[in-house]
């Protein structure tokens, strides 16, 4: 099963029960505004938040658990991995604190414990332990209106399309997270345009990591090329100099 979450913003009433449940299950301490906060309510101690979208809609923000995650591709030590259940999880024992994941994430999700002397990256982990035990994530369990539900990604996708087909006048004809940037495990349907979550009007279908991975594929060739070229030039020039002077220079 590919774990996924479908959030239907039309059903969200903004009660914050998911936020509270998340804090409770993950033992997150209480929070207060900090200098380094972004304006969306996500912090190192708040892994999900409700942001107010256009026309009084509530949109739950959390890690999208991309199918081809930029953070996983970026992390130089492999501290972030895509778990078998589909969650993008973090191994704090491997992390060295370079924060490249935070720079790479196209959705701007990972948060840092700036106030800690031993800081770690924090974000939603799709309640990986609970899901592995057969439970559902704390947030979807706590939601009183079923606005955010947990399930298999394919089933949730068909459910999303079913809802859109049933009420085409209510919903935008788009499932956010279905295909853009290679798709995500946390998908949305909404009556408002959710482009404001990323700041980009529409996202391309190619996953972000392909950009760097293409560049990385060229690395062995560039290295061999440079080394071979230098060795060749050196060989040619030394030979020519030997011919001219009858002996090596220096």
């Amino acid at each position: 099963m590919k774990a996924a979450i479908l959030t239907d913003t039309t059903k969200c009433i903004g009660c914050n029960e998911c936020v509270i449940a998340c804090k409770k299950v993950n033992n997150l301490p209480p929070d207060a505004p900090r200098r380094w906060d972004r304006d969306d309510g996500l912090t190192a101690r708040n892994w999900t938040s409700i942001v107010q979208g256009p026309s009084d809609s509530f949109v739950r923000k959390q890690c999208r658990h991309c199918l081809d995650p930029a953070c996983v591709s970026a992390c130089p030590v492999g501290a972030l991995t895509k778990s078998p259940t589909g969650a993008v999880v973090y191994d704090s024992n491997k992390c060295m604190g370079c924060r490249y994941c935070m720079m790479a994430c196209p959705y701007g999700i990972p948060r840092y414990e700036w106030d800690q002397v031993v800081p770690h990256v924090r974000k939603c982990i799709l309640c990986n332990d609970r899901v592995a035990k057969g439970l559902q994530p704390a947030c979807t369990e706590a939601c009183p209106t079923q606005a955010t539900i947990f399930g298999d990604r394919d089933e949730l996708l068909s459910e999303a399309h079913r809802r859109i087909a049933a009420e085409p006048r209510l919903y935008h004809d788009k499932v956010w997270g279905e295909s853009e940037l290679g798709g995500a495990s946390v998908i949305y349907i909404s009556n408002v345009d959710l482009g404001f979550l990323t700041g980009a009007e529409s996202l391309p279908a190619t996953p972000v990591p392909t950009t760097t991975e293409h560049a990385m594929e060229a690395v062995p060739f560039a290295f061999t090329g440079a080394v071979a070229a230098m060795a060749g030039i050196n060989w040619i020039i030394t030979r020519r100099m030997k011919r001219q002077t009858g002996g090596p220079d220096e």
């Binding site: 591709s73 970026a74 992390c75 130089p76 030590v77 492999g78 501290a79 491997k94 992390c95 060295m96 604190g97 370079c98 924060r99 490249y100 840092y112 031993v118 800081p119 770690h120 990591p209 760097t212 991975e213 560049a215 990385m216 690395v219």
Partner: peptide
């Protein structure tokens, strides 16, 4: 700059060849 500078040697042990930062390091 590293949050956990004492872990800088992790790059030697834990590899992620997809990452440009890994290569730069």
């Amino acid at each position: 700059d590293l949050g956990l500078p004492w872990n800088i040697w992790h790059m030697l042990v834990f590899w992620n060849p997809h990452s440009p930062l890994f290569e730069v390091g």
